[in-house]
Amino acid sequence: MSTINATVLEAAITGNPEALDVHLTLVERDVLLAGYSVKIHCHCLAVDGNGRIQLRRLAEFMRNAAADYALPRSKVAEAKARDAKYNSTEAVAELVERAKRSFTDLAKTGEGGEMLLFLLAERFLKLPQILCKMDLKTDSRLHYHGADGVYAGVTSEGVLKLYWGESKIYEDAGDAIRACLGSLAPYLIEPEHEGAERERDLLLLSDKADLSDPMFTAALRQYFDRSSPQSNRVRYCGLALVGFKASFYPGEDAQAVADDIAEAARRALVGWSENIGNGLAKNKLEQLEIEFFCVPLTSAQGFRDVFLETMGLEKK
């Protein structure tokens, strides 16, 4: 049986990581909090050469990755192979349209945040998504149950690090942080039992975890087979993203300066980090390994609106 290692997981990652830097500017990474096992990362919206905030370009970038996010890797690989055989783009184009139709058109949708979490997890942290839950939706206007994403890493000893993902896009940073950690906590701290919050996703992983390559996919699924010794070699970790309105972005008619925005974000990160520490303590997450993304936005609802419009969805 094949084993899962860092090389295998890295091979499953989608997209060009440098493209992420075009749309999101890294302000700080791996910020540590004393007494906690969390790493905080902060990205701001990029500023172009004309001093404009590039929110719509970010939404277009996200739209172009919809198939990578919303469809199982094996289905995308099959479509690419079919197109290569027939010298066509028909199969991939069909999948792209299918992926876009799976997104909800609800005005308060959280799917933009979930997709942003996917892009940062894969292209910034090099953690591949191993369970594609958008493909399991039976109604595009409903959100799927369970975590906002499931990602994988591995230790040098071969222990699978299973990252449960949660994202919240709110106007207020404190509200977003509290809600995100409150939603994430059950997946990390509940005892193992059939009624645990994560149990539904674990059952899905045993059958639908996907690394595209059939051999490595079979090896990965062994970690979620309760009759396999590999099931004792899984460590639960957290992956969190909060997006929220930040006052340091200039108005629509004002010219933005990237360095000023980054400096303001660094100052504000002190307060956001304090809120994160309080949320970790409240939810008994002090010793759990968590990668935490802070993404200040010009407006939370503005982000949702632009995402829906770019995806070709009418707000409901």
Score class of each variant (00 low, 15 high):
Ile290Glu: 01
Gln287Ser: 14
Gln129Glu: 07
Ala179Asn: 02
Tyr170Phe: 07
Asp139Cys: 15
Ile4Thr: 07
Glu314Asp: 09
Leu55Thr: 14
Asn50Trp: 09
Ser2Glu: 08
Ile169His: 01
Thr155Val: 00
Arg57Ile: 08
Glu10Ile: 12
Glu314Tyr: 10
Glu197Asn: 03
Asp175Val: 04
Gly158Ala: 05
Met215His: 06
Ile276Glu: 01
Leu24Ser: 04
Gly312His: 09
Ile40Asn: 04
Tyr36Gly: 03
Ala152Gln: 00
Asp225His: 05
Thr7Ser: 06
Tyr170Gly: 02
Lys282Glu: 12
Glu291Leu: 03
Thr89Trp: 04
Asp30Gly: 02
Phe124Thr: 07
Lys133Phe: 13
Gly312Gln: 13
Asp259Ala: 15
Ala99Tyr: 01
Met134Pro: 11
Ser102His: 10
Lys126Pro: 01
Pro72Ser: 11
Asp201Arg: 14
Leu188Trp: 06
Gly251Lys: 15
Ala268Gly: 01
Ala67Glu: 10
Glu78Leu: 08
Val31Trp: 01
Glu199Gln: 15
Cys180Arg: 01
Arg178Cys: 08
Val242Trp: 01
Gln230Asn: 15
Leu288Glu: 09
Ala91Asp: 15
Arg98Ala: 11
Ser183Gly: 08
Leu211Val: 11
Gly174Met: 00
Lys80Gln: 11
Phe244His: 15
Ala179Val: 02
Phe103Leu: 11
Thr89Asn: 14
Asp201Ser: 13
Ala79Lys: 01
Glu166Met: 05
Glu291Tyr: 06
Ser140Trp: 09
Glu28Trp: 02
Phe118Gln: 04
Leu24Met: 05
Glu194His: 10
Leu95Glu: 02
Ala262Ile: 10
Glu60Asn: 15
Leu117Met: 06
Val242Ser: 04
Arg304Val: 07
Gly277Leu: 06
Leu203Ser: 12
Tyr223Thr: 03
Ile177Trp: 00
Leu241Pro: 01
Leu181Asp: 05
Lys108Thr: 13
Glu309Pro: 02
Leu239Val: 02
Asp207Arg: 12
Thr7Leu: 11
Glu289Arg: 04
Arg123Lys: 13
Gly243His: 02
Glu289Asn: 06
Glu122Cys: 03
Arg56Gly: 05
Arg63Ala: 14
Leu136Val: 14
Tyr223Gln: 02
Lys100Asn: 13
Leu205Arg: 06
Leu119Asn: 15
Thr7Met: 09
Leu142Cys: 08
Arg266Pro: 12
His145Met: 13
Thr217Gln: 04
